[in-house]
Amino acid sequence: MLNVGKIEEGFVLDHIKAGKAMKIYHYLGLDKMDCPVAIIKNARSDVMGKKDILKVECDINTLNMDILAFVDRNITINVIKNGEIVEKRHVSLPKEIRGIIKCQNPRCISNTDTNLPHIFYLADEKKEIYRCRYCDERYEENDAEEII
């Protein structure tokens, strides 16, 4: 495996579906932070074939990790302290997603009154369905345009 060096304090996001790392990088707002970040694309994985990995050297508690499960439920979070993994976390779907995805319904008020916050709520946890808070339109990833 490619070696980008160990981190002392921070977290590693593992088992990211290959190709999704950059998306998560933006969703977490890491582009706006000055902490060291390593983005590993297409790492070999016995289970997944290939996967992405993100290594971030900053306090995990300063970031809102809710969005991770929305991108990919299989992501695992390894929390690192003093160079050791001290905790493994699994992610769960956020009840609400704010300011990250946009409603695709052309008749939705959020697309004309553009100063409104874009809000989606978890309508069905089992089926992983999110709906627009304003018009109840279902969010479909494929044709979606993102805010960030």
Binding site: R107, I109, T112, D113, R133, Y134
Partner: peptide
């Protein structure tokens, strides 16, 4: 009454 969906909620 408004042609935009979600307008009343806003």
């Amino acid at each position: 009454r408004h042609p935009r969906e979600g307008a009343a909620m806003v």
